[in-house]
Simulated assay, not measured.
Amino acid sequence: MSIAERAVAAHRVAQQHLDYQATAADADADIARVVGQLAELLGVGPHRVRPDRTRARRSLPLEPLTLHATDPDDPLRRYTFTYLDPFYDDESFFLLEPCPLCAAPVPLAEIRTLADLGAFLAAGPEPLPGDGGTPPDSYPDAFDQHPAHTAACAYRESQRVGLMRRGHCAEALDLDGPQAGRVRRQPVAERVEIPLEQRFPWITGAGLMVLPTRA
């Protein structure tokens, strides 16, 4: 394909994205924009990308938007991505693939360009330590302790992280020993009284010291 043909094809794809976003309702405008971003990144029409409409928009912690992209050359081949918050337009997509340990669909690659997807598809995920140790650098931060891991997976979300994610910070402070789940309180330091004349040296006894004034 020549440069001119590629340029015309890119223009047509971009125009499809604009048309798709223009027809979206106001409430779905952010989702439509993200659909267009992913379609443009993959070089496919926006009708090839389907967002998950069951996402709870106002849930806390924030539930990422899930998008399914169909390969135009192989309709049976589908790629699943997540996008944290459609309100922002500068976040990464994450490719969901089976965890090498538990086979649950979790983020295995951060995708900002088509080359990022190509790098993952060419090499696949790196082997993981079976004891739940630090994953290789090729794994995104979203992979570690992701809630989709199975209960037996070494990378399943820990109790402490789960409490912190749900805002129960105090309960997460102490999860070991007989006081598990309770707030660890530090002993209160003994109060030391400082004599009044040391705190306010211009006060003597019950009266006030007369301070000299400038003439």
Score class of each variant (00 low, 15 high):
Met1Thr: 14
Ile3Asp: 09
Ala4Val: 13
Glu5Trp: 03
Glu5Tyr: 00
Val8Gln: 02
Ala9Ile: 04
Arg12Ile: 14
Gln16Leu: 08
Asp19Cys: 03
Tyr20Trp: 06
Ala24Glu: 09
Asp26Thr: 15
Ile31Asn: 02
Ile31Tyr: 01
Ala32Leu: 03
Arg33Tyr: 14
Val34Tyr: 05
Val34Gln: 08
Val34Pro: 07
Val34Asp: 04
Leu38Asp: 07
Glu40Cys: 08
Glu40Arg: 14
Leu42Asp: 07
Gly43Phe: 03
Gly45Ala: 06
Arg48Phe: 06
Val49Gly: 08
Arg50Tyr: 05
Pro51Arg: 03
Pro51Trp: 04
Asp52Leu: 00
Arg53Gly: 01
Ala56Phe: 02
Ala56Cys: 07
Ser59Ile: 05
Leu65Thr: 00
Thr66Ser: 00
Leu67Asn: 02
His68Pro: 00
Asp71Tyr: 06
Pro72Thr: 09
Pro72Glu: 05
Asp74Cys: 03
Leu76Arg: 11
Thr80Leu: 06
Pro86Ser: 05
Asp89Val: 11
Asp90Glu: 10
Glu91Met: 10
Phe93Trp: 04
Phe94Pro: 02
Leu95Met: 01
Glu97Cys: 01
Pro98Tyr: 03
Pro100Leu: 15
Pro100Val: 09
Pro100Glu: 14
Cys102Trp: 01
Pro105Lys: 06
Leu108Arg: 09
Leu108Tyr: 10
Leu108Pro: 00
Ile111Asn: 00
Ile111Lys: 01
Asp116Cys: 10
Leu121Asn: 00
Leu121Met: 12
Leu121Cys: 01
Leu121Thr: 07
Pro127Tyr: 12
Leu128Ser: 06
Gly130Ser: 07
Asp131His: 07
Asp131Thr: 03
Gly133Met: 09
Thr134Val: 14
Pro140Val: 10
Phe143Leu: 04
Asp144His: 09
Thr150His: 09
Ala151Gly: 01
Ala151Tyr: 01
Cys153Pro: 00
Glu157Arg: 15
Glu157Val: 13
Glu157Ile: 15
Gln159Pro: 08
Gly162Lys: 00
Leu163Cys: 03
Leu163Val: 08
Met164Trp: 10
Met164Tyr: 13
Asp176Ile: 11
Gln179Pro: 03
Gly181Ala: 13
Arg182Asn: 12
Arg185His: 14
Pro187Phe: 03
Glu190Asp: 13
Glu193Arg: 13
Gln198Arg: 13
Pro201Tyr: 12
Gly205Phe: 05
Ala206Arg: 15
Leu211Gly: 09
Leu211His: 12
Pro212Arg: 12
